[in-house]
């Protein structure tokens, strides 16, 4: 199994609802306790987030486009964060989810150094590493209606830019969404084989501008009005 997300960069509007939903669900996480903020109401509010959205401009005018890129753990097939972890706190489950066991983590941040995507952040209250769990405490919960057994970010997305599923199943939501539209993996050279896939933003059709009107002098206007101009 290779559970992961498919994120459509064409439909994502960069509203941060996925990050807020993530923060809300994991704020009362069954996995590792609250997801803390620091100086939340102060001048320099900051906090631990498992999903961050960055905004880019792609191409140059008039073929430019804003591309919003939400980034969380990619649940890499060959996850360097798991390889380097000295305590065994970071591990990869048979279903593909990469998790941190907070009871074993010593907070050395070495896994965050090994992650090329900045997907891991330290919980500065508990001193342990936090990361996207793919809402492992939701997706298998049989008390929830089946439609709700999805990561909080996927459920929250107002433009359905996010899908969740098993990439090994060709009929899953993610496999169908990614078919023919997925971008090459980010930082492919590193060879970590990220499971999450990003779908390419489509190029908007160019809007044809009206050609500029030819320059006319006042005399031309008068001639045109009088019916004597070349153009009339």
């Amino acid at each position: 199994m290779r559970l992961g997300l498919a994120i459509d960069l064409d439909t994502c509007v960069g509203c941060h609802a996925c990050a807020v939903a993530c923060k809300e669900w994991n704020g009362e996480s069954l996995m590792a306790g609250p997801l803390p903020d620091y100086d939340a109401y102060g001048k320099e509010a900051t906090g631990t987030w498992l999903n961050r959205i960055r905004h880019y401009e792609c191409g140059t005018y008039p073929e430019n486009k804003t591309v919003n890129v939400p980034m969380s753990c990619m649940h890499c097939e060959d996850a360097a964060c798991v390889t380097v972890c000295p305590t065994g706190a970071s591990y990869k489950r048979p279903d593909g989810i990469v998790l941190v066991d907070a009871d074993k983590c010593m907070g050395c941040s070495y896994c965050a150094w090994a992650c090329p995507y900045g997907a891991r952040e330290l919980d500065q209250d508990e001193g342990t590493m936090r990361k996207c769990t793919l809402c492992v405490d939701r997706i298998y919960d049989e008390r929830l209606p089946e439609a709700d057994r999805q990561p909080a970010c996927v459920l929250a997305c107002p433009t359905h830019a996010r899908a969740f599923g098993d990439y090994d199943d060709p009929d899953s939501d993610v496999s169908r969404a990614a078919k023919g539209r997925s971008l090459p993996p980010m930082l492919e050279k590193l060879g970590y084989k990220p499971v999450n896939q990003y779908l390419a933003p489509r190029q908007a059709p160019e809007i044809k501008m009206q050609p500029p009107r030819p320059k006319k002098s006042l005399a031309d206007y008068i001639r045109d009005w009088a019916g004597a101009g070349k153009g009339s």
Partner: peptide, 10 residues
């Protein structure tokens, strides 16, 4: 270490 009580696991 942010959580040195687990250092023995290293």
């Amino acid at each position: 270490l942010a959580n040195p009580k687990n250092a023995w696991r290293s």
